[in-house]
Design a protein around this nucleic acid. Structure first.
Lengths: 205, 205
DNA sequence: GTCTATACGTCGATAGAC
DNA sequence: GTCTATCGACGTATAGAC
């Protein structure tokens, strides 16, 4: 860094004529994240090597370190991106609703998300309650955003109940029933799961 | 998975599960199991080394291999013993009860167990839904015994509901609310958690 | 039965070619 | 920006002393 090197933003690779603004980095990043979610959900963080992720993503190990810096940083990115996507979906599902209808919408949307991203759901369940991990703070921050969506609806629906604990209970009921379904009873229709959860967490209706 | 592959259950190693235990061995075994639960719950299986467990238990690494044969076998023992204890406690809590009172007793007892063995509770949540692990079969077997206690009570209480999915929902609501409490709101009284869960999973009454 | 010492393999991270 | 080759650190499991 002392001698004269060109510290400028590196020139882009040869753009293929006809390829519409396809940053090679986005594709690489995306495939790495996808592979990491799938592998870590199944085997856990430490049991999944960076070599495994690179092989599954179809990239070289060096590319992972170029794009994310470290294995821990990669995992943090996976968690943060996933939870932000989940939070956005939950928020969107309750727009214009309140009361029991809003609770019903949240439960339904969470089940949809669990079915759409089962690996990520497993990963969240496996890692949220850990305390001795480097990414604890990242997880905790996004966790609270997601939980707040539930807590706000609970507060507006049942003013006499504890918002955060009730939100955790409803969230847990939905998530665990959804994973029970995907992991052990995948042949059941989604409607069965939704019906069972709603019958459990909503008063007679 | 690991380094040298031990060619399956070979009769070579001295420690045979089920063999009569000499008194000195029990103390060593117990301290190893306790240390393993605490460390693995916090950091995960692969992130916890046998050296760490040995140090926390106050024994030498060789003693762990003498008593359990492998790191995987140690973890299986931890899981099986813990879930059997939980199942026994749940069964005992509903003797002579049925209907909503039995549900209430199960929820209460599960919260008591979560509070009494928080490390084990975290560990269970982290590992139950994994599929790519060696001990998958051990976990699944004991998991079903515990879940059956809930499902039986659900079946007797609400004949119109799906037993296994409803059991999963109630179990999930209780466990996640309990861990939310221990991990993020430990200052709250236990009664708050119990009240929130019961208000969520039991119809007005 | 429990300890210490060590062999053998794997993993995260880096360097440098292209 | 992505690749290959490689290094140092650490982890499981075993051998043999006590």
């Amino acid at each position: 860094m002392t001698t004269h090197e060109t510290p400028d933003p590196a020139p882009a690779p040869p753009p293929v004529p006809g390829a519409p603004e396809s940053p090679p980095r986005r594709a690489t990043r995306g495939s790495i994240v996808d592979a990491a979610v799938a592998l870590i959900a199944d085997r856990g963080f430490s049991a999944t090597s960076v070599d495994d992720i690179a092989a599954a993503a179809g990239v070289a190990k060096g590319s992972i370190y170029y794009n994310f810096g470290s294995k821990t940083a990669l995992f943090e990115a996976v968690i943060v991106e996933g939870v932000e996507r989940l939070t956005a979906a939950l928020r969107a599902s309750v727009v214009g609703l309140d009361g029991p209808a809003a609770i019903e919408a949240l439960v339904t949307e969470l089940l949809v998300q669990v079915q759409a991203h089962p690996d990520f759901a497993k990963l969240v369940v496996a890692e949220v309650f850990r305390t001795g991990r480097d990414w604890q703070h990242s997880i905790r921050q996004v966790r609270e955003e997601s939980m707040a969506v539930f807590a706000d609806v609970v507060r507006a629906t049942w003013p006499d109940r504890d918002p955060s604990l009730t939100a955790a209970a409803i969230f847990g009921a939905t998530l665990v029933a959804g994973l029970e379904w995907l992991a052990f009873q995948p042949q059941r229709p989604a409607a069965d799961v939704r019906a069972a959860v709603l019958a459990t967490v909503l008063p007679r209706g």
